[in-house]
Design a protein around this nucleic acid. Structure first.
Lengths: 256, 256
DNA sequence: CGCTGGCGGTTTGTCTGACAATCTGTCATT
DNA sequence: AATGACAGATTGTCAGACAAACCGCCAGCG
C-alpha cells in the first residue's frame, strides 16, 4: 500500500530521472533550434491532469461518472493535494463539473450543447483558416501541407485508429498555430478536448474517412493559395460535416 | 495572528449555521419562486477565487506582480489548500501564470497579445450579436433594451465609474446570454476578465463614453430589428473602436 | 401504507504541520 | 571581475485530522 509511495518519495516528484539509463547525452544538449529547452512540466499535478484528460478522452471515464478523490489517489498513487488541484484545472477546462459537497463528475454534454459546441468550433476554425491564409509564412504552409499529407497517407493506408487520431491532431496543431492567436489556440484546444470526449461515447465511423481527407485537403489547398475566404469556408464545411455525423450518432445514443 | 482562525474553525466553513438559533423550522421550506435555491457557492475556495479575480480586475494586483501563497493565506485568513486551489482555477482562466517552481504571477499581456485578444473578442461578440438577432425571444430583446438604456442613462447622468462598469457588465450579460451558447458564454466571460485587467493598467478614458453609448445603442437597435448582419457589424465595430483606444494607451504605457 | 425523521457511513472541504526540491540573492574565493 | 558555494525563501507534495454535507436505510407514527 505505501511502499510505492516511500519509493517515490525521497527522490520526490522528479519525472525525468533515470529515463535515459546510462548517460545524459541526448537530453538537453544540442537540439531544439528554438529558444528554451523543452518546457517539460514535471510537476505531479500536471501529470495527473494530463493522465485524466487522456482517460476522459479515451472513454475510460465516461460522462456522468463520479470521480472519487480517494480512488484517484490510489489509482495514481499520489496525494490528495495533487489530485484536487488537477481536478480544479479540469473543472476550469469544462471536462468535469463539481457540485459543492458532492464531488466531481465527468461533464455530460447534451445534444443541444453538442450543437453549440460544434457551432463555436466552426466559427473559430473558420477564423483560423482565414487568418492562416493571410498571415501564414511559407514555412508554416509547408508544414501544414506535410501534416495534411501524412494524415491522408495514414487514412488511405488503413493505419490503426490511434495513429489516425495522432496525425489529425498534428494537422490541427498546425492549423491552429497558423492563426497566430494564443487565445484562439487555448479555446480551440479546450473545445477539441471536449469533442474527443464526445467521440469516445459515439465512436468513430470509418466510412467518413475519405470525405474527411478530402475536406482537409481542401482546407490545405485554400490556405496555401492564400485565399482567406475559401479557407474559411472550407474549414467551416469540415466542422459542419463532422458535426452532422456526430450529432446524428449522439441523438441515437441519447434515445438509447 | 491565529485567533481569528480559531474563531472560524470549530464552526468551520458553515455560512448558514446557527443563523436560526432555536429550531430548524424555517430552513428550507417555502421560498424561491425560481427553480433551485440560489446556488450560493459557499466554499471558501470560490470566495477566494472571486476576491482575487476582483483584486486583479481592479488593479490591486498588477500584471507582473508575484503572488506569494503565504501572504495570500494571511490576507484572506484561509489555509493554503484553498488558496492553491483557487490559484489553479485562475491559472486555467489565464489571469495568472505559474512557472513551475517560482510561483504564480499576474499575467502580463503584451501589446501583440492584446491585439489578439480584441480580435477574438470581436469575432465572438459579432457572433453573439448575430445569433441574438435571429434567435432571441421578445423577452430577451426587452431585457437587452432595458440594460442598454440603463447604461445610457448612467453615462449621460455622470454616474460614478463603478456604476457605469456595473451597468455595462449587465448589458453584456444580456448580450452574451442571447447567443444561447454556453461555450461562447464561458469564453467571452473569460476574455472580458482579461480585458478588465488591461483596463486597470490603462485606465478608462471618459471622452469616449458618448460614442460608446451610441455604439451600444446601435447594437441594441440592430438586434431588436432582428437584423443579424447589422447586429454582427455593430458588435464588431464596438469592439474595434474600444480596442483602438485601449491599444493606443497600451502602446504608450509599454514604452514608458 | 406512506411519510417523517433520525442514524450512520461516505465523501468533500479545509486546516495544519512537515519536508524535499528548487530558486535567488549574497558573499567569500580565486 | 567572474565563479562558486551557502543560506533563506518559496513551492510542491504528502499525511493526518476533523467538521459539514450528502445518502441511503430503517424504524416509528399517523
Amino acid at each position: 500500500m505505501s511502499n510505492k509511495q516511500r519509493a517515490r518519495r525521497g527522490m520526490c516528484y522528479s519525472t525525468p530521472s533515470n529515463r535515459s539509463p546510462a548517460g545524459s547525452e541526448k537530453v538537453d544538449s544540442m537540439e531544439q533550434p528554438r529558444l528554451r529547452i523543452s518546457k517539460e512540466r514535471a510537476t505531479i499535478r500536471h501529470l495527473v491532469e494530463e493522465k485524466m484528460r487522456e482517460l476522459i478522452a479515451t472513454g475510460h471515464f465516461k460522462p456522468g461518472d463520479r470521480l472519487i478523490e480517494r480512488e484517484l489517489c490510489e489509482t495514481f498513487d499520489v496525494g490528495r493535494t495533487s489530485v484536487r488541484e488537477a481536478l480544479r484545472q479540469l473543472e476550469a477546462e469544462g471536462l468535469i463539473r463539481t457540485e459543492p459537497h458532492r464531488g466531481p463528475i465527468v461533464t455530460k454534454v447534451s445534444f443541444g450543447e453538442a450543437r453549440q459546441l460544434y457551432q463555436l468550433r466552426a466559427l473559430l476554425e473558420g477564423f483560423c483558416g482565414a487568418e492562416f491564409a493571410v498571415k501564414g509564412t511559407d514555412e508554416e504552409h509547408r508544414r501544414l501541407f506535410a501534416a495534411c499529407e501524412a494524415f491522408a497517407a495514414a487514412a488511405e493506408g488503413k493505419a490503426p485508429t490511434e495513429q489516425l487520431v495522432a496525425r489529425k491532431a498534428e494537422f490541427y496543431r498546425c492549423l491552429i498555430a497558423g492563426a497566430r492567436n494564443i487565445y484562439v489556440e487555448d479555446m480551440l484546444t479546450s473545445l477539441h478536448n471536449r469533442v474527443s470526449m464526445l467521440r469516445a461515447t459515439t465512436m468513430t465511423q470509418p466510412h467518413r474517412l475519405p470525405k474527411s481527407v478530402e475536406e482537409i485537403r481542401d482546407i490545405t489547398r485554400a490556405i496555401c493559395a492564400r485565399d482567406a475566404d475559401w479557407a474559411r469556408r472550407a474549414s467551416i464545411t469540415h466542422v459542419e460535416e463532422s458535426s452532422k455525423i456526430a450529432l446524428q450518432l449522439l441523438s441515437d445514443a441519447e434515445v438509447a
